[in-house]
Design a protein around this nucleic acid. Structure first.
Length: 922
DNA sequence: GATCACCAG
DNA sequence: TAAACCCTGGTGATCA
């Protein structure tokens, strides 16, 4: 008979990880239960272990009891700086004991001992009986226990079993030396001091050379040790190192309150478990118990859904013959839809090469079609694959077949890659966009996270397939078996998510925004990214050189003023110079205790001509501006020019901003300077091809116009209709006269309103007292009562429903709107006031983008291309001959983009400029 | 990796 | 009580 096998669950560790991983769900009693839910699903997964041949015979959950331990007696600073647990986590601790009891598992905690010590002690006792032990945790301290071959670890969050080799991989030493390495490294969270300057790499090297902490310290004290900072630190902090060694040592001789036999598993009775799940309304789990209770639904994510079988990676087929590929395609045609995913050599779609395509027709009906594996040093033998042209020709027929729906997750990426192979993809659905339109604000929308949330499935991690760092390989270097498991799983999971989202969209009122705005936008964005924009490298490097000279000059001056050289870019050093050495009066800021040296602070100092720091502050401001422009723009942008196209191809995220805006990365082309003359020059480097011009079209004050419409403010609506200056009107209403100053203040207030105003924020902006700011706000609300009403209604709704909506029905969820932490709640309120306005603006420009290309083509403008979107601006490259007509078409499409779905009571103004460069087009 | 600072709408 | 510090984003440098 097999020996007993004890599972020890590190409950405390899981609570915190579940808390930070999951959205802050609430049950029907209004109690926060996010961490409890995560913990419960973890125990659930553990129940699967029961069916393993070498599964548990005994099990217990070990928890920390909040109290001091022997380590505090040794070192009073131990865990002293650990912040208290978040407020909405505290009430979940007792519920976690409930959850454990619901599974009929013993729950062990003891005064004066950390969970780690109890786990160590029970482990030792079990080993003494000849049992084997699995520690369910990913805690690095507990890895010390794997010195015995009968001990392993299990991390249920990613379903990984860890053995001693995992310790070697992570820390460079085996479990027997781990305590010494951890001691030298220290741990800032637990406040284990360690030795300054020694991280994991150095610690491992030292321990491997000298055996243990004492050996390292002895070596450092001897003359043979290499002189330098490391040796000084080891000598100076020798005592701290010895103390740390004791702190990380696990106590394995704690008297056991429960004899091992008590921990025997007797099965999980259903009744208490059902009662617990029903109390919290965990419907997905209840569904799995066999029967769904009809409790009200508290979160859409837990709507029960017809159960799919778990992902079976061995069921996936590697398609290496044309016949087989034809069969898969025929089945896709027969059923009318297919989930699809591409694998490539890299993550930048505009530079990556296609390596393979996976398809899924249903749960566990998935395959991988390798197209470009092998041929490199690492996988020199080219495996059998269908000839690339044959496969691509068939895939093209499938992707362009109007009778087959292609489903992807972040399909924009695949559209770009396939587009480079001459393949269009239509019609389509995109699960990342579906998820965003359903659940923006609740959680991220990456496939791994969605699989965990909706399918309770841990996807194979990409880095586990290709590795990381120096040993990382391209996907084309992966063997076909591993590649198939990973790639086909992606398509399989995409299909499973699609089925759920497809049902939820109409049920939750999100079909409109998905079908009218976001879904059709996907291929439009893919096209824009493929086009890219031409950038004049010489112009950028010229600016870089110019800036370099000025920066060097400023550095000399600044160092002279400071009396000594220092790192100007270090806020810490600059703060010390200004506030300590030069005695400038000013305030501390931030938790880390460094002086704030941001723009407002430096401008304040520079303005006080009597101050000793005025000169240096002014110079540092100039230095900051120039280094920012050089590092972030003139230098960095040159590296982003694609050598193949000579153009810069940004990547837009359709799910990056919770309000529905796009965001732009690698490079970010939505924050190219414009507000200062010197920064503006960078825009001159964005140019048109010969025979073309750049055309830039901006919505004029679109958010204020939308506020006037949505809050129904007659004065503002009429002013926009007349084409009046809106800030002057506000100044007249608020101050009774229009001057430069009152107009500037009015402009600030107008924008502050859109952002969810607070008296302190406005006070800081206008440099007035909070009371004066409050008086202005009161007056604003008095003159424009609609604004006040809009804010109140928006807040009432978001508190009731948990989300706001745009005029097109886009939802943004605000989990923190009920937070007990004041500043979190207030932050959520401000964001909620802003979201419908910012989001509607995003909806409108997206609709303009969707209609733009068809409208241009219909007008016979074949050469005009849309290149960039910057929130309220669209940038085009236009052949000289098309400029005048393009102006008209673009202006018209943008101005009418809301119609006919939404009829606005204000006109949308569009301003258009044309020039040889982006800078000249403004 | 966290923090600060700063670019845009 | 004291603090609050206007929304949405992304990137680069420094420092532990």
């Amino acid at each position: 008979m097999a020996a007993n096998h004890l599972y020890l669950v590190d409950g405390s560790g899981y609570i915190f990880r579940a808390y930070h991983r999951l959205p802050p769900l609430t049950n029907k009693h209004g109690e926060p239960v996010g961490a409890v839910y995560g913990y419960t699903t973890m125990l659930w997964k553990l129940a699967d272990e029961l069916h393993r041949a070498d599964g548990p015979t005994h099990m217990a959950v070990i928890l920390d009891k909040s109290s001091s331990t022997f380590r505090n007696a040794m070192y009073d600073q131990y865990k002293a700086h650990r912040p208290p647990p978040p407020e909405d986590l505290v009430p979940q601790f007792p519920m976690i004991r409930d959850a454990t009891r619901a599974f009929s598992l013993p729950c062990i905690e003891e005064e004066g001992w950390e969970a780690d010590d109890l786990i160590a002690s029970y482990t030792r006792a079990a080993l003494a009986q000849g049992w084997s032990v699995t520690i369910v945790s990913s805690d690095k301290d507990l890895m010390q226990l794997m010195t015995d071959p009968s001990v392993d670890m299990l991390d249920t969050m990613n379903n990984r079993r860890l053995g001693p080799e995992a310790v070697v991989e992570k820390f460079g030493v085996g479990p027997d030396k781990l305590g010494d390495v951890l001691a030298l490294m220290g741990d800032s969270v637990d406040n284990v001091p360690g030795v300054p300057g020694v991280g994991p790499k150095t610690a491992a090297k030292l321990i491997l050379e000298h055996g243990d902490v004492e050996g390292v310290l002895a070596a450092a004290a001897s003359d043979t040790f290499k002189k330098g900072k490391l040796r000084d630190n080891l000598i100076e902090h020798a005592e701290a190192a010895r103390l740390s060694r004791k702190l990380v040592e696990l106590a394995c001789d704690v008297p056991l309150e429960h004899p091992l036999d008590e921990l025997v598993l007797q099965g999980i009775p259903e009744a208490p478990l059902r009662a617990f799940l029903e109390h919290h309304g965990f419907k997905t789990l209840l569904g799995r118990l066999g029967q769904v209770a009809d409790a009200p639904v508290e979160a859409p994510a837990s709507v029960p859904f017809a159960e799919d079988p778990p992902c079976d990676h061995d069921s996936y087929e590697t398609v290496t013959t044309v016949d087989s590929l034809d069969r898969w395609i025929a089945e896709a045609r027969a059923q009318g839809f297919v989930a699809i995913d591409t694998e490539t050599t890299g993550t930048d779609a505009t530079r990556a090469d296609l390596v393979g395509v996976s398809l899924a027709l249903g749960a566990n009906r998935a395959c991988y079609v390798p197209l470009g594996h092998g041929g490199s040093d690492l996988l020199s033998e080219v495996p059998v694959q269908i000839a690339r042209e044959d496969a691509l020709a068939r895939l093209k027929d499938l992707c362009e077949d109007p009778a087959v729906l292609k489903i992807g997750h972040n399909l924009k990426f695949d559209m770009i890659v396939l587009g480079e192979c001459g393949i269009a993809v239509a019609p389509h659905d995109d699960t990342i966009v579906m998820s965003f339109d359903l659940d923006a604000g609740l959680h991220g929308h990456g496939m791994d996270e969605l699989a965990a949330t909706h399918l309770s499935h841990s996807c194979i991690a990409y880095k586990d397939v290709v590795g990381t760092g120096k040993s990382q390989r391209g996907f084309h270097e992966i063997d076909l078996k591993s590649a198939t498991r990973y790639a086909a799983e992606d398509a399989d999971v995409t299909y499973r998510l699609w089925k759920r989202f497809k049902a939820r969209l109409p049920a939750e009122g999100s079909t409109r925004v998905y079908e009218m705005v976001d879904r059709p936008l996907v291929p439009v964005i893919a096209q824009m990214e493929r086009h890219g924009i031409k950038v004049d490298r010489e112009r950028l490097s010229g600016l870089s050189a110019e800036f370099s000279g000025q920066i060097a000059g400023l550095e000399t001056v600044i160092h002279g003023l400071a009396g000594a050289p220092f790192t100007i870019g270090s806020p810490k050093q600059l703060g010390d110079i200004l506030f300590e050495r030069m005695g400038v009066k000013g305030g501390r800021k931030g938790k880390s205790g460094v002086y704030s040296t941001d723009v407002t602070e430096l401008e304040r100092i520079a303005a006080d001509k009597d101050s000793a720091g005025a000169e240096i502050a002014a110079r540092v401001l100039d230095w900051r501006q120039l280094t920012k422009l050089k590092n972030t723009y003139t230098d960095a942008l040159q590296n982003e020019i694609n050598p193949k196209t000579g153009r810069v191809h940004t990547s837009y995220s359709l799910t990056g901003a919770q309000t529905g805006r796009l965001s732009s990365t690698e490079p970010n082309l939505q924050n190219i300077p414009i507000r200062t003359e010197i920064g503006r020059q960078i825009r001159d480097a964005f140019i048109a091809e010969p025979g073309h011009v750049i055309l830039a079209a901006d919505y004029s004050q679109i958010e204020l116009r939308l506020a006037a419409h949505m809050a129904d403010v007659p004065q503002l609506r009429e002013a926009f209709a007349r084409g009046d200056d809106i800030h002057s009107l506000t100044a007249q209403e608020l101050f009774g006269e229009v001057t430069r100053d009152t107009r500037a203040s009015a402009k600030t207030i107008n924008f502050a309103i859109l952002y969810g105003i607070s008296r302190w924020g406005l006070a800081g902006r206008l440099d007035i007292t909070a009371d004066e700011a409050q008086a202005m706000i009161d007056r604003y609300f008095e003159r424009f009562p609609g604004i006040n009403r809009y804010i109140a209604e928006t807040l009432t709704q978001v508190r009731e429903r948990g989300f706001t909506q745009t005029l097109f029905g886009r939802k943004t969820h605000f989990a923190r709107i009920k937070s007990k932490v004041q500043h979190e709640r207030q932050g959520a309120e401000r964001a909620a006031i802003n979201a419908p306005i910012q989001g509607t603006s995003a909806d409108i420009i997206k609709r303009a983008m969707v209609r733009m290309t068809p409208a241009l083509r219909e007008a016979g403008l074949e050469g005009t291309r849309m290149l960039l979107q910057v929130h309220d601006e669209l940038v085009f490259e236009v052949p000289d001959a098309e400029v005048e007509r393009a102006r008209e078409v673009i202006g018209h499409v943008m101005a009418t983009a809301a119609e006919p779905a939404v009829k606005l009571t204000v006109p949308l103004g569009v301003e258009i400029g044309v020039g040889a460069s982006w800078g000249a087009a403004h």
